[in-house]
Amino acid sequence: MSDASASRSEILSAVRNRHVPAAALPDLTGAWITFPDRAAHFAETLRSVGGTCVDVAGIEELRVALQSLEPVAAAKKVYSALPEAAPSTFDMAQVADPHALDDADVAIARGEFAVAENGAVWVTDANLKHRVILFIAQHLVLVVPRNQIVNNMHEAYARLRFDGPGYGLFLSGPSKTADIEQSLVIGAHGPRSLTVYLLDGSA
């Protein structure tokens, strides 16, 4: 332990002993990009990164849309955070070990808000027992209120608070790689598809 604290103080004093000139922390207000139709730009950007964006007018329309969504229709094992729109095929509360989710076909989760400039959706594990479901399922569906789309990442961070333990991510499109000769392949380790439903009306 004494060695560990020695390293700490040595590093801290090393960086403090350097005479680095003072520099002001920049203000983050700026003429950042905005879009006349945020939902349209979000949908277009999401498409460009391999995802699909669908508008639905309400829960009932979402329910119908999910029924006919190919991965859901074909799925044996589905986790749904929106039972009112699609049922789970198992009880997540009963899953003790996240490894047991390896055979999940579809995960349906809520996204808090979306970002128009980059097609990302902010998702947290606040109501997820095992966050791995977002990555281990073969297909992912996110449901985001249509009135919760910000223009850019500055607006996104203005909404976020990190004042306690937690996990959240900006998720933009399905898992992908271009590590073999720069050819884009969808479905690297995580979901092979991402469908985002922009839900009108209720949040």
């Binding site: 400039e117 980059n118 990302a120 990442m153 996990y167 998720l171 933009s172 499109g173």
Partner: peptide, 9 residues
């Protein structure tokens, strides 16, 4: 890309 697919906090 406009952002990486996963930006995990």
């Amino acid at each position: 890309q406009p952002i990486t697919t996963y930006s995990s906090h």
